[in-house]
Amino acid sequence: MIKNNKTERHIISILTKNQPGVLSRISGLFSRRGYNIDGLTVCATEDESYSRMTVTVSATEQTANQIVEQLKKQIDVIKVLDLKSGDVALRELLLIKVNAGAKERSELCDLCTIFKAKALDTTQSTMMFELTGNTSKIDAFIDVLVPYGIIEMARTGGAALERGKNEN
């Protein structure tokens, strides 16, 4: 019996057949059953007949179990893993453009070094950076850039894989 009622972050990795309609079938399942998606990434896999979706959700254990079971029932779904407890590598990608005049440029480059971000573009008044990392690293980088004035940003959902040889 499930006792834990705390809402926690779950990373759900879904291996699906690469078929028309799969994305709307899966995302539709989340919306109509009232599960909130924090992040969603769809990507190719080593085999072109399959795709991998990585969905991050904040949910109680009961809801997360429900999500996994509902996903398993989908005909197009090959494998579902709730990666919450496992040893997982998760990465997001951030592209961010901030106000940066000549004065701020070197300071921003220092921040880049600390976070291992890449400067992608510079104009007289702006700079654009690229960063990959887990959610908290990306959050932290955005936080330090706020004072400069964020012009716009694009952030992907997570892509996640279990570490080690685990085939389940």
Partner: peptide, 13 residues
């Protein structure tokens, strides 16, 4: 037969 029915509306032991 449907694993998604387990614990959906009522929690079971």
């Amino acid at each position: 037969i449907d694993g998604a029915e387990i614990d959906k509306n009522v929690l079971c032991n």
